[in-house]
């Protein structure tokens, strides 16, 4: 039986020579800052199923720095590696794959040019194309949008791009379905309402999207403890959960999260 996946996310600041992982790392807590490939090796030891490297600097000239990070990582870490942030065109994807990435994730570029999903899937395979969706709840009914029941009332979910700075007017559920038809292999679904809150995943969002598509959905945004991951993997059809700060800060190991999942009846690779 296929195991549910636990995916640490490494947000990389590539503005320094070797890059560094920065998510949730404040100046006072610098001991948790890490060199990306060293953290990657640690997560491999802990039993992570996959790793996602997001370039949060995402300027064009940093592409080569990310390639170096992936090259260094793939010398010693043998699990699926995804690169996201700043993948704008097929050439960026190719650079990532040549450096050792197995998948790329696209968000803004795919919303601006949906054909990019088809192109990546065609040239590198469906499994190589992850569509990242950053979605925000909208409680005001709009024509054509899929309304979803939540404890806080009916809402739809709007896709955002440019790192959450701009909104698209596009319904996240409809976009997920279109992305599957275009050949995306995974959907990395981040709740903007929950991201950074540590209040737990957006269960209604995750359930709505994972019930609407046949490709795996990676739940993201809001993870504060292992029980949150248990909740989203037990109560929705999500195939994977992503978390960053609970791992980077050393609050929990991947192994501890998986032990909690196993006890809760979720099938994981231990």
């Amino acid at each position: 039986m296929l195991a549910k996946r636990i995916i640490p996310c490494l947000d990389c600041d590539l503005g320094v020579p070797h890059g560094r992982v920065v998510k949730g790392v404040k100046f006072k807590q610098i001991r948790y800052a890490g060199i990306p490939w060293e953290l990657a090796e640690e997560y491999d030891r802990q039993g992570a199923d996959e790793l996602i490297f997001l370039d949060i600097t995402a300027s064009h000239e940093r592409r080569e720095t990310m390639a170096k990070v992936i090259e260094k990582t793939s010398d010693n870490v043998f699990m699926p590696l995804t690169v996201g942030g700043g993948i704008r065109a097929l050439a960026d994807a190719r650079t990532a794959f040549n450096s050792g990435a197995d998948k790329v994730s696209v968000n803004t570029a795919a919303l601006r040019n949906p054909g990019l999903i088809n192109d990546i899937a065609k040239y590198f395979g469906n499994q190589a194309c992850v569509l990242a969706i950053d979605a925000k709840r909208r409680y005001r009914r709009e024509p054509g949008m899929e309304m979803v029941d939540t404890p806080d009332g009916e809402c739809w979910f709007e896709c955002s791009f440019y790192g959450g700075r701009e909104f698209t007017g596009i319904d996240a559920l409809q976009w997920a379905i279109e992305a599957e038809e275009r050949g995306a292999g995974d959907i990395m679904l981040t709740s903007m309402d929950r991201d950074g809150t540590k209040d737990g995943f957006d269960i209604e969002l995750t359930a709505a999207v994972s019930d609407s598509v046949n490709i795996p959905v990676i739940a993201s945004g809001g993870c504060g403890n292992p029980e949150h991951i248990l909740e989203v993997l037990r109560d929705t059809n999500a195939s994977a959960a992503l978390a960053a700060s609970i791992f980077h800060f050393g609050e929990y190991t991947v192994g501890e999260v998986k032990e909690c999942l196993r006890k809760g009846g979720v099938h994981v690779r231990l």
Binding site: L2, A3, G185, I215
Partner: peptide, 10 residues
């Protein structure tokens, strides 16, 4: 089943 199979299996 979801196709492709993608992930860790026993």
């Amino acid at each position: 089943v979801k196709i492709p199979q993608m992930g860790w299996n026993e």
